[in-house]
Measured scan of single mutants.
Amino acid sequence: DLRKKIVDLHKSGSSLGAISKRLKVPRSSVQTIVRKYK
């Protein structure tokens, strides 16, 4: 699940930009998912 991957990467200390590059999703999507998770 993409959300879980993003949250896991964020927990392990990756920046939003790094996560978005790695998973090839827009940075804004990463930000939204991380914000919802918090």
Rank of each mutant, 00 (worst) to 15 (best):
D1K: 10
D1W: 14
D1R: 12
D1M: 12
L2T: 06
L2G: 03
L2N: 05
L2M: 09
R3S: 10
R3Y: 14
K4T: 09
K4C: 09
K5H: 09
K5P: 01
K5R: 13
I6Q: 00
I6T: 02
I6L: 01
I6S: 00
V7P: 01
V7I: 15
V7W: 12
D8H: 10
D8Y: 12
D8M: 14
D8K: 10
D8R: 10
L9W: 05
L9S: 03
L9C: 09
H10I: 11
H10G: 01
H10L: 13
K11R: 13
K11C: 15
K11G: 05
K11M: 13
K11W: 05
K11A: 08
S12T: 10
S12M: 12
S12R: 11
S12Y: 06
S12G: 11
S12V: 06
S12P: 00
G13L: 02
G13A: 01
G13F: 00
S14V: 15
S14N: 12
S14M: 15
S14A: 15
S14H: 15
S15R: 03
S15E: 03
S15V: 01
S15G: 09
S15Y: 00
L16M: 11
L16D: 05
L16V: 14
G17N: 15
G17A: 13
A18E: 14
A18G: 06
A18D: 13
A18K: 07
A18N: 10
I19R: 00
I19Q: 00
I19P: 01
I19M: 02
S20Q: 02
S20V: 08
S20N: 02
S20Y: 00
S20W: 00
S20C: 06
S20K: 02
K21S: 07
K21Q: 07
K21Y: 01
R22Y: 12
R22S: 12
R22W: 08
L23H: 01
L23I: 04
L23D: 03
L23G: 03
L23P: 02
L23E: 03
K24L: 09
K24M: 09
V25F: 03
V25M: 08
V25W: 04
V25P: 01
V25D: 04
V25Y: 04
P26G: 07
P26H: 08
P26R: 09
P26F: 01
R27I: 14
R27N: 04
R27Y: 14
S28D: 08
S28K: 14
S28M: 06
S29I: 15
S29R: 14
V30S: 04
V30Y: 00
V30A: 04
V30M: 02
Q31P: 03
Q31G: 08
Q31H: 06
T32H: 13
T32D: 13
T32Y: 09
I33Y: 00
I33E: 05
V34N: 02
V34W: 03
V34L: 11
R35D: 13
R35E: 14
K36A: 11
K36I: 09
K36P: 00
K36S: 09
Y37R: 05
Y37L: 11
Y37S: 08
Y37H: 10
K38T: 09
K38A: 11
